[in-house]
Design a protein around this nucleic acid. Structure first.
Length: 220
DNA sequence: AAAACGGGGGC
DNA sequence: GCCCCAGTTTT
């Protein structure tokens, strides 16, 4: 039984940054270069169970027509649905997006609230979406755990958790707060390019030396 | 904790 | 056909 030295942020983060520097940004990352909380919020809702390229195209079409809560709230639900097609769940999402826009206008003076509980109260918004909006849109430290962040964190041995919410809290203990906002983007890129769900590229992974490889049976 | 939601795209 | 997808909500 060999004890592996713990992976510290000072070791981990520069290597993840190198991975990200080596690849062209994903289409969804381009969308999320915006700091506009409303666009981030809507793009996040659209992204649910939908591939990032489809999400990026869908949100771009919607924002070309309506990019503010007031403008989106004024659109008929069917119009929103047509604009975000072919994102998965497009009917459900159209209703949610419009309802979110309506409530931002009615309850928050037309501006996305920079408050986690207020964001979570919107339909279709969970911790992942709320934390991404807080981090990227408001600069409020938050770790946004999607499937990539959850899988990668556990596979590396950084945390040992069952649910994404547990991962969020565990990562807060492991990572200094200054990394909380960027760690999501870093790990997602890493998870897409190297540490894929099945058959990850361990042979070209800059973290392989200290990876616990939890749950990895086949690799390249 | 597990299933439902609910649908296109890629192979 | 079958499996995947930068989750959320309900049972």
């Amino acid at each position: 039984m060999t004890t592996r030295p713990p992976i510290g942020a000072g070791w981990l983060v520069p290597r993840l940054e190198r991975v990200r520097a080596g690849v062209r940004p994903t289409t969804l990352a381009e969308v999320e270069r915006t700091r506009d909380p409303f666009r981030l919020l809507v793009a996040c809702v659209i992204s649910l169970r939908t591939k990032d390229a489809v999400t990026a195209a869908a949100s771009a079409r919607l924002f070309a027509v309506a990019a503010t809560p007031r403008a989106v709230a004024a659109l008929p639900e069917t119009r929103v649905a047509k604009l975000i097609f072919p994102a998965g769940f497009y009917n459900t999402k159209a209703r949610q997006i419009r309802e979110i826009a309506r409530r931002i206008v009615a309850e928050h003076g037309g501006y996305v609230p920079g408050d986690r509980d207020a964001l979570l109260a919107f339909p279709g918004v969970g911790r992942k979406t709320a934390n991404l909006v807080l981090g990227l849109g408001f600069g409020i430290p938050a770790i946004c755990v999607d499937t990539h962040v959850h899988r990668v964190s556990n596979r590396l041995g950084l945390v040992r958790t069952k649910t994404p919410e547990q991962t969020e809290y565990a990562l807060e203990e492991v990572l200094p707060q200054r990394y909380w906002i960027e760690i999501n983007d870093l790990m997602v890129t890493f998870g897409q390019q190297i540490c894929q769900p099945v058959s990850p590229w361990c042979s070209r992974c800059p973290l392989a030396a200290r990876c616990a490889r939890v749950g990895v049976t086949h690799s390249r």
